[in-house]
């Protein structure tokens, strides 16, 4: 197969192991979006009130999509958005995970964060932590790139 001659678009935050992280985020975003779509569609079909947990799942899935984009997109603004969305996910999985144990009537429904995400192999619990470690390690490169840019200017 011929090598592509045009250089692939590069971003500072999407190299090495980080790419794997992006893919796992992408798959989680896809899974969470699909599932909350099915859950909400069925609740509406049965003319029930859509349970809070399902709306929260829908919100979570949108945030996962934004986080996936933010991890790939270059620049400082996206870097900040990546931090905000990943923090939101970590807080979400911890709060909802705890509430699903203490207040099962509220959250003991299959949502992406219930029981600390055990329906998703606990991926929602450890993925944000991996994401944060990785973002932190990219920070240095971002600062170095800024210094290079200002030195060149």
């Amino acid at each position: 197969m011929p090598e592509l001659t045009a250089p692939a678009p590069r971003s500072t935050r999407s190299k090495g192991v980080g790419r794997l992280l992006v893919v796992v985020y992408g798959i989680l975003a896809l899974g969470a979006t699909g599932r909350s779509f099915v859950q909400i569609a069925h609740s509406l079909e049965d003319a029930q009130q859509v349970p809070l947990a399902f709306w929260l799942s829908a919100l979570a899935s949108v945030v996962y999509i934004v986080a996936t984009i933010a991890l790939v997109a270059p620049g400082r603004i996206w870097y900040r958005i990546a931090w905000i969305t990943i923090t939101f996910e970590l807080v979400g999985v911890l709060v909802v995970g705890t509430l699903s144990l203490t207040h099962p009537e509220l959250f003991a429904r299959p949502s992406v964060w219930s029981w600390y995400g055990n329906g998703y192999l606990f991926i929602p619990l450890f993925l944000p932590v991996l994401g944060m470690i990785w973002l932190r390690s990219r920070r240095r490169n971002l600062d170095a790139a800024d210094r290079d840019a200002s030195a060149a200017a």
């Binding site: 090598e3 592509l4 692939a8 678009p9 790419r19 794997l20 893919v23 798959i27």
Partner: peptide
């Protein structure tokens, strides 16, 4: 998923793309 994985593999020809194909 395979469409996205193959697209990625064609845009970025590194070993990480092969790992990503495996994850997919």
């Amino acid at each position: 998923l395979p469409a996205a994985g193959v697209f990625w593999a064609l845009v970025e020809r590194t070993r990480w793309s092969t790992v990503i194909l495996g994850v997919v």
